[in-house]
């Protein structure tokens, strides 16, 4: 039980993701979470004016179920399977974040400075969350997949184009993390 309640090391987390990939393949589906964002557009009626969203979303119902499960899993894990949710990040990262006035670093699961109701009253924080989300949604569909669809599913199936996408993910992430974010925070 203690093993479950403590944070899971990478050599548990990684194989668990591989197991999820296998289960989806075994039940005749492919792993890809960002497709759900497209399905949500279609459910909201985007298919009436845009061809890209004009498809039978019921065929994607299984993936929406995976999303609902992911929500429930987050609730179960945080409520019942965790004693201390603080994330033990590397001391160098910790001091770097403290310099950027992230007082919750090392003491919480998510930074209070970005992901709390109080923080959301700041225009800067709202900009980070909304623009970040917008780029994730736009980029995932443009690239035809996100971390699960390309870095896990696509690379596992030795798709060269998924490697291009993953290299893109890291170029974008590194530029944001090292060049843009220090000015925003």
């Amino acid at each position: 039980m203690e093993l479950i309640l403590n944070p899971w090391p990478w050599y548990i987390g990684g194989p668990m993701i591989a197991l999820i990939l296998f289960l989806l393949l075994y039940f005749g589906k492919n792993f890809g979470m960002s497709s759900n964002l497209r399905t949500l557009c279609t459910i909201c009626g985007a298919g009436k004016s845009t061809e890209f969203f004009n498809f039978d979303w019921k065929k994607q119902q299984w993936n929406l179920m995976v999303s609902v499960g992911a929500i429930l899993g987050g609730a179960i894990a945080s409520q019942f399977l965790t004693i201390d949710s603080s994330v033990a990040i590397h001391p160098d990262t910790l001091s770097k974040l403290q310099e950027l006035n992230f007082e919750s670093a090392g003491m919480a699961y998510m930074p209070e400075e970005l992901f709390s109701i109080q923080a959301m009253t700041q225009p800067k924080v709202l900009f980070i969350l909304s623009f970040g989300g917008f780029l994730v949604g736009f980029g995932a569909r443009y690239a035809g997949g996100c971390t699960s669809g390309h870095a896990i599913s696509g690379l596992s199936n030795l798709q060269l184009v998924s490697l291009y996408a993953v290299i893109g993910f890291f170029i974008g992430g590194l530029v944001m993390n090292h060049i843009v974010l220090p000015y925003l925070l």
């Binding site: 999303s67 780029l135 736009f138 690239a143 996100c146 971390t147 893109g168 993910f169 974008g172 992430g173």
Partner: peptide, 23 residues
């Protein structure tokens, strides 16, 4: 894949979450 990937990466680095963990 390159353009879309870079745009996705910028968002991943900014919001710190990709679509699965968001849920």
């Amino acid at each position: 894949y390159v353009y879309g990937g870079i745009i996705f990466g910028l968002g991943w680095g900014l919001a710190g979450a990709c679509p699965g963990p968001m849920f």
